[in-house]
Write a protein that binds this DNA or RNA. Sequence first.
DNA 1: CGCGAAACGCGCATATACGAGCAATTGAGA
DNA 2: TCTCAATTGCTCGTATATGCGCGTTTCGCG
Lengths: 265, 265
Amino acid sequence: MASVSLRRAARISAILELLAENRSLNASELALEFGVSAATLRRDLQMLEDQKLLSRTHGGALAHDVAYELPIRYRGGRERDKKRLIAAKAAKLLPHGPLTVGFSGGTTTSEVARIISDRVDVTIVTNALNIAADLALRPRLKVILTGGVTRPQSYELVGALAEQTLRDLHIEVLVCGVDGITASTGLTTHDEVEAHTNRTMIQRSKRIIVVTDGSKVGRTLLARISPVDVINDLVTDSSADETELEYLRAAGVRVHIVADPGESD
Amino acid sequence: MASVSLRRAARISAILELLAENRSLNASELALEFGVSAATLRRDLQMLEDQKLLSRTHGGALAHDVAYELPIRYRGGRERDKKRLIAAKAAKLLPHGPLTVGFSGGTTTSEVARIISDRVDVTIVTNALNIAADLALRPRLKVILTGGVTRPQSYELVGALAEQTLRDLHIEVLVCGVDGITASTGLTTHDEVEAHTNRTMIQRSKRIIVVTDGSKVGRTLLARISPVDVINDLVTDSSADETELEYLRAAGVRVHIVADPGESD
DNA sequence: CGCGAAACGCGCATATACGAGCAATTGAGA
DNA sequence: TCTCAATTGCTCGTATATGCGCGTTTCGCG
């Protein structure tokens, strides 16, 4: 399976990945590794330089000041399947009929957004650049993006501008991704300005569904978004700590667990 | 309506299934496996790409979620070279030092944005989703995106929300793409709500640089953005109609022409 | 400072893939 | 059964990806 000759797109992505780890790389070594001629590899590097994703040097390339990790965050097959299951479950929680649904940033929320993009009767509100870019292509969907300053690490729009935009919007159901959740400290994330924007989004929403994989349950991070009593549902997987889930249930959160094989309801 | 044959439906779902497992597919192998011609399989892939379920590459296809992250948008051919020259010239018109630059949507403006993405001292304001997504990877750059409703055709954010966001911003230099420009009717574009948003952006800007290829010069389209007297510079190529350019100069526009070989200043 | 090796850019050649149009075939409904 | 649209395969001209060769540039080392 690994012997499949990599086509260009795969090479490009591999190059970017390598560049994220080592700050520089050697062209001839790479050519050997990929099994292509030096000319081809040079062309790849040339193209990436055109996109300003790296600087070429003699014999290789140097990393640019770019968040390379971001584009490749979908690695890890099993992880992704888990997120998909969570997303599918969350999508089922959304009511039928015309609906305004909000999405915060995060990989799991993006999956949910993709799933419901089939629907023709929903309006999407989000501060996630990748979700908007993805859904903007579907002409039948109305996608509203908040303004704001881009945060490279998460592709989210944050800041006063984002919050000001949200002030005029009302969201019926919000699908919210978090980096940590406990019954005692609530929803938390790494960045405090992101937390603030997410809090605003929560305040503008009538119903909150939190999606997050099990590893985040019981975890507390730097910035608090909100206490748990504002949220209605939590969708996570079976790796979540059971004790913490019990606390959350006691706090009034409807907890939905998806299992690895497949859950009915 | 259009009934899909059983065979085809089966093929399509098989393709999607395979794509979910492996992130990429080889077209010719698939054709062999299904026992259909390459042309048929290409049509299948084409159809799935139209539905945004995957991204095609040469010789196969990539899962959509993998692809939208990669810089697989280096298409454009000769047209693109011309736009690049225009973009390079426009970028040179930007003053040195700290600066707030605005960008409207359009392929040429996107090129300008990419060129200046090296600079560390600029703040970018834009309503173009693709520009923001591109530049969001650069941690040293401050990128502000207006809010608004996405327009699938142009990747721009438009509408009242966008204009409200712009009200609080001041742009020093705006790089603006248009679909038509004449001295008599001014700047025009296809869509009237897009025109309105662009007009707002122009009003918030101190200096306006219009970039557009020569074919748009002398052309008038449905929706007027603004008369020409608000703009300071026009950058276009030598295919522009000389008479119209003369009118524009007479109207006070500084006209910059890039030639196919290479222009000094 | 000069020299050789490696890397580079450019042009050419080739295999594969692509899109559009046309013809044959299939299949579903009247 | 008959008809018509959908599906499929084929061909042809074009585009893309890749490799190779050659003259030039750059880098490292004595």
